[in-house]
Amino acid sequence: MKNNSGFDSKIEKLARVTASKTGRRGFIGKLGGFLVGSALLPLLPVDRRGRLNEAQAATTGNLTRSGFKPQDKDPKACDYWRHCSIDGNLCDCCGGTLTSCPPGSSLSPSSWVASCYNPGDQQTYLIAYRDCCGKQTCGRCSCVNTQGELPIYRPEFSNDIVWCFGADNDAMTYHCTISPVVGKAS
């Protein structure tokens, strides 16, 4: 049999001090409360959409019912300020950039617009959402933002339309969307 080590002595001392200061029922009650609380925590009505999306794809910053909260650091995230009214796939995640289409697609000269607030310089800009067309839907970085988005009877502010009007070869097929600045919003 081994001799008592210093570690064992410290643990024994800690246990005796704890026992002398803590009622058994109180300790068990607190332990039980902790365990029950831990078990119930996942059942609380929190919005898990973001977590689910994170688990399923690389897309981050998806809109929740608590509203659009823009950031100015990551243009590949749905909450990047320029994407405040985008509905579709970010071309930046599909082989393009914020302002250029992926190879092989064609850029539409028409778009819907929205006013987006840039928290970096605290200015509001008019953004033109131009669709890149002529290919199957990209599918990556899928975002649905609706800041200032209007019904289809106001088409210039509606993000539900396939905005491929005027694209090469009349291909009304949606691939992804870029978010170039038109100018400062007045």
Partner: peptide, 11 residues
């Protein structure tokens, strides 16, 4: 319907 901020009408 649900409790939501403005401009989240498609969620």
């Amino acid at each position: 319907a649900d409790q939501r901020e403005k401009w989240t009408h498609k969620l």
